Amino acid sequence: MTTSRPHTLFSFGTLMDEQVQTALFGQAVPTSPASLTGYTTRPLPITDPSVIATSGLDVHLTLRRKYGAVVEGAVLHLTDQDLAAADAYEVDDYARRRVRLSSGESAWAYLDAKPLRSAARIVVVGDSIAYGRCDPRGGWTAHLAAEHIAANEGEHRVFNLAIPGSTLLDVSEQTPGLLAARLPDTLMVAAGINDSATTPTGGDALPHVTDRLDALAATASSHNARLVVAGPIWLDEERTHDYEGLRFTEERALSLREAARSWCDENHIDFLDLWDPLHKRPDLLVDGLHPTPEGHLALYQHLNTLNR
């Protein structure tokens, strides 16, 4: 016999309504007051007729990040079946993610499905590609920072803490000490290509990628930040050859991409796939591995489409 697991879900909107609960779960469910620090709300127009029929509203609320703000709501205590019903009720604009309540406890909540759209203070950690190597303008991260900050000069920030040559082990060990002063609400990890490389000693870091991501997820949670994982870019292995003692191949990069994506799916973490913008475009790579300035712009434009 399969036993249903208990789940806690933070609600700040229509799921707190007993009529909505009865329609979804067959009855009102146990609830307790709760709050979420570091968030505020904004209206979200709803077009799905079934959702409108259940809630009686064509405008719901969605969360966005704001330092110092607090959203009051309640924690719903749900079964597996209840949680599945709640997932089916929420429209595609929402994604179920883990949040840290003001009490310090962890719970599910429905956040904006576009993770950077709702962010305010973004920290980027990663390797030379995230750092912006080969682009004097600072790479795709600089493009992201320019637009994000221009949208709200008072509250929006982007901190690029990427270090060329970093592996996911390096990032997972260095990041905890870098976050407190920057008050991030979003931690974007853009690393791993160095983990995919083969070395003269035969070491293989790929099997440990998920362990590094587990550590980074714990770090993000401890700072009440949403973890976002950026997948690897396409590389032209005909030109990478032996790069500073490392050997990069498309097969290994694809393995990294799949490992990161699968981990994100299993853990309800946001995965931003950066493979396609440069795929089969060797003209957008300086050395087969690092994007040209035009390549960085293409990556940024792709990110923009994923988050707008």
Rank of each mutant, 00 (worst) to 15 (best):
L44T: 08
V125K: 01
S102F: 02
F271K: 09
D170S: 11
D170W: 00
R121L: 01
D170T: 11
C134T: 15
P291K: 03
H7R: 06
R247T: 15
A217C: 08
L63C: 09
S166D: 15
E244A: 14
L213P: 12
P232I: 07
A107S: 15
D93V: 14
E155I: 08
D58Y: 00
D58N: 13
R5A: 15
S255A: 14
P6F: 03
V286Q: 11
T292C: 11
R64N: 01
Y39R: 06
Q19T: 15
A253C: 15
S35I: 02
S172I: 07
Y110P: 15
S222I: 06
D135H: 06
A84P: 02
G138F: 05
A113M: 03
S4Q: 14
E258F: 02
G154H: 02
G139N: 07
A298F: 02
L278M: 09
V70R: 04
D242S: 14
A53R: 13
S262T: 15
T186G: 05
S4M: 11
A191Q: 02
G177N: 05
L57N: 08
R308Q: 13
V124G: 01
P43E: 06
A220E: 00
E244S: 14
S221T: 12
Q27P: 05
A298T: 04
L116A: 05
A215R: 13
E294V: 09
L57S: 12
S196H: 06
S103Y: 03
P43F: 05
R96V: 10
H7Y: 04
R308L: 12
A162C: 06
Y243I: 10
L179I: 05
R281G: 12
P33H: 04
L213A: 09
T41C: 10
L254K: 11
R157M: 03
R97C: 12
H208P: 01
F248R: 09
E244F: 12
G38N: 07
L24K: 06
S128I: 07
T219A: 04
